[in-house]
Computed example of a mutant assay.
Amino acid sequence: MKALSLLICLLFSGILQAQEVKIAFQQQLPNSHPRYLTDSNGKSETLNLIEKEDWAKDVFEKLKKRTDLYAN
């Protein structure tokens, strides 16, 4: 029973630590630019949104125009 209690405590402390790391990462990002964080599964959804929605396409084109200055 002690081992199970210890395991549960370690599990919860690991979960809490992961949340702190996530919050710290978000706080390091500057607020001066828009950002959209997604994983590889969300990439296709984002591309579909850009293709189907005029507002998303407009936002994407404006961001691309700003970042193309640094890419070339």
Results as ranks from 00 to 15, higher is better:
R66K: 15
D58E: 15
V21D: 04
L16F: 08
L7P: 00
L47C: 03
Q27F: 03
L4I: 10
K22H: 14
A3C: 11
S13H: 08
Y36N: 09
Q19W: 07
K64A: 05
R66W: 04
S13F: 10
F12Y: 14
I8R: 11
K52R: 09
E61T: 13
Q17S: 15
E51H: 14
S40M: 15
F60S: 02
A3T: 12
F25I: 15
L47A: 08
R66A: 15
Q17Y: 14
Y36Q: 09
L6C: 13
D39W: 06
L29Q: 02
W55M: 10
L47V: 05
G42W: 03
F60N: 01
G14P: 00
R35P: 00
Y36E: 04
Q28W: 03
F60G: 01
D39R: 10
L47G: 02
L4W: 04
F12S: 14
T67K: 01
E53A: 09
Q17G: 10
I15R: 09
L69Y: 02
D39H: 08
S32E: 14
V59H: 00
V21G: 00
E45D: 14
K62R: 15
E61W: 06
F25T: 08
K64F: 03
S32L: 12
A18L: 09
S5R: 11
F60C: 01
A3N: 12
N31A: 13
Y36F: 12
T46P: 00
L10C: 09
R66H: 13
L69T: 03
E20V: 04
S44E: 14
R35D: 02
L69I: 04
Q26P: 01
V59R: 01
Y70W: 07
L16C: 05
N72W: 12
H33L: 11
N48E: 12
I50H: 01
L63G: 00
D39G: 10
E45K: 04
H33E: 13
L6G: 08
I50T: 01
D68F: 05
D54R: 06
K22V: 14
L69C: 05
E45M: 06
A3H: 08
T38W: 06
N48A: 12
F25W: 07
M1V: 08
L6E: 13
H33C: 13
D54V: 06
V21N: 04
C9R: 11
P34I: 04
L63M: 12
E51K: 06
I50Q: 01
V21H: 03
